[in-house]
Write a protein that binds this DNA or RNA. Structure first.
Lengths: 129, 129
DNA sequence: TTGACCATACGAAACCTTTCGTATAACCTC
DNA sequence: GAGGTTATACGAAAGGTTTCGTATGGTCAA
């Protein structure tokens, strides 16, 4: 089985996915309203995008109500991993560590965040034993 | 001054940039040959892409020889940072730390790499004081 | 100097993304 | 049940990416 993996979302699609991750399953109107705050595209634009995303398998649609309800088909984490892996391949010569180092250098991470990262590092070194 | 910042390279463009980073300034033929190993596109396709990239400012062209020589206009590091910042904004809610953590979790970084990362972390915590 | 070869330039097709107008149907209220 | 509101579906335009064919001119050797 397996079919094809979901394609990498485009910029606009990612904007919609962000809304769905935050709000949970939503109607076109809800997504549109949420996006209106920042970006403004017409209602039918969002509708069309969601229709296309359904075809691509990026979201799933519940048609039981008149106003269809859309939900992401992959968790935020899974999509993030996918995008990350993609970037690692395309721009960091396949080395996740290179990406991490580069990101850390450019990062204005807070003290707490640095602590969390350090903890993660500790655990990884433990497991590597 | 400043003009506009160079646009985010597309996938194909990034493939070409990778070759230029690795080989240094190169002719169309050299880039084409290098890419032939993995991907195969026609010679004029690469030529056209490089012409467009020149217009966009992603590469610079030396026309003193009959076979023009192309070079990247931004260092690999600078482009990587740009792509990273972009991904952080688009998929990680603007939090570099989230990206780092996600990347670290999925990473099979070597012991040395982990050490380097830890050193980086130390320096950052020092400076944050 | 002519022909084979190699380079760039140009234009256009094919495809994808993003946008939205318009058509049509469902629903609600009076 | 008529009219206003709100939904989806559809089609198509505008712009960007990727592809390559063809035109044109420079280079070199016989």
């Amino acid at each position: 089985m397996a079919g094809k993996p979901t394609p990498r979302p485009t910029d606009s699609e990612l904007g919609i996915l962000r809304v769905l991750w935050e709000r949970g399953p939503s109607t076109v109107r809800e997504v549109h309203d949420a996006l209106s705050r920042s970006h403004d595209s017409g209602y039918t634009t969002i509708l069309k995008l969601l229709q296309i995303m359904t075809e691509k398998g990026l979201v799933v649609r519940d048609e039981r109500q008149r106003a269809h309800v859309y939900a992401t088909s992959l968790s935020q984490q899974r999509t993030q991993s996918q995008l990350l892996g993609d970037l690692i391949d395309r721009a960091f010569g396949g080395s996740p560590a290179k990406l991490v180092m580069q990101a850390l250098s450019a990062s204005k991470a807070s003290a707490e965040e640095l602590t969390v990262i350090r903890g993660l590092l500790d655990r990884m070194e433990e497991e590597a034993k």
